[in-house]
């Protein structure tokens, strides 16, 4: 896999306060990396350092396997914080202006972008007269000018209506699948992010506390029945012989997780009792990304 971004102990301090602290992350080509964290976790600061808007206090950012930053950033597209548009120009003029500034001389590039972000109908509209959702679409369009290899999108779904969110999600998926565009995305809409992301980075207090792949997160947030039993060896035997499944996991001396029969807990209890296993507790366990995130944040706060 080709490395797109690698950070080594990346730190940013503002007046002694570490907004980002010792972050080591890596993003490979083709990843859709979701950066997840509460407000003030350091997501935007990290994105600003990656895009060259903020200078790291210490540590380093390696882009496109050590390409010169100015060359590497030419291959990137960014949407950081609120949409940065020229309010005195129209939608089309903004795209035309940035296309010139970015050196995109390809004929029809502006029309292609207008089409991609669904703004063709509003091309002549003055920015002042557009809604936040339209501004957001245009800002995403500007980030897409010149077909960048790596996109940094900070809260791209902000201000979009449900239809808009769906369209942008599909657009990101399409870019990733067809052009192998690598995407770093942050969002508060965790369930939306989970529909596109292939890797996750969880941030708290400026630290990157956990990195997970899509599969790892799926595994962690898998729906199952968690049983507290008198004898896990006997319980495992019941699972195999009585219930006919090997899809279980012994956690400790008295806990076992069963990934089948999730909606048939009474059947499981009956089988256990029949097999001579005492069931002290049976809990339906299953976490959405939101629940996983909340539990992770709570656990981190306790530490």
């Amino acid at each position: 896999m080709k490395g797109i971004v690698k950070t080594n102990a990346l730190t940013k301090k503002y007046h002694g306060f570490a907004a980002v602290s010792e972050v080591n992350m890596s993003i490979e080509k083709g990843d859709i990396y979701a950066l997840i964290g509460e407000n003030g976790a350091g997501k935007s600061t990290l994105m600003k350092m990656l895009s060259g808007l903020a200078t790291p206090t210490s540590g380093e950012v390696i882009l496109f396997e050590n390409q010169h930053p100015e060359v590497a950033r030419f291959r990137m597209g960014c949407l950081i914080d609120s949409p940065a548009l020229d309010t005195r120009l129209s939608v089309r003029d903004n795209l035309e202006m940035f296309a010139r500034a970015f050196g995109c001389h390809k004929a029809g590039e502006v029309d292609r972008i207008l089409e991609l972000v669904g703004m063709t109908k509003h091309a002549g509209k003055a920015i002042r007269k557009t809604s936040l959702g339209m501004k957001q679409r245009l800002a995403i369009g500007i980030a897409l000018l010149g077909s960048p290899d790596f996109l940094i999108l900070d809260e791209p779904m902000n201000g979009l209506d449900p239809m808009g969110i769906q369209e942008i999600r599909q657009l990101l998926k399409k870019l990733n699948e067809e052009n192998q565009t690598t995407i770093l995305i942050s969002s508060h809409l965790l369930d939306e992010v989970s529909k596109v992301a292939t890797r996750y980075g969880f941030m708290k207090g400026g630290h990157l506390i956990q990195e997970l792949s899509e599969e790892e997160l799926e595994e962690k947030s898998k729906t199952c029945l968690r049983l507290k039993v008198s004898d896990t060896a006997k319980a495992a035997m019941v699972c195999e012989k009585e219930l006919g499944t090997e899809n279980y996991e012994v956690i400790d001396a008295e806990t076992i997780r069963l990934f089948d029969y999730v909606d048939e807990s009474s059947k499981v209890v009956t089988a256990m009792v029949r097999g001579g296993v005492e069931v002290g507790e049976i809990v339906h366990v299953g976490e959405s990304l939101e629940e996983f995130f909340n539990n992770l944040m709570t656990a981190e706060a306790r530490q």
Binding site: S51, L53, P69, R73, F74, M76, D86, A101, F102
Partner: peptide, 18 residues
């Protein structure tokens, strides 16, 4: 001054323009 007010200049810096 509009480029600083609208912060549109940050897009140029993020694109590798020094």
């Amino acid at each position: 001054s509009g480029e600083f007010r609208d912060k549109s200049w940050k897009l140029l810096i993020a694109k590798g323009i020094s």
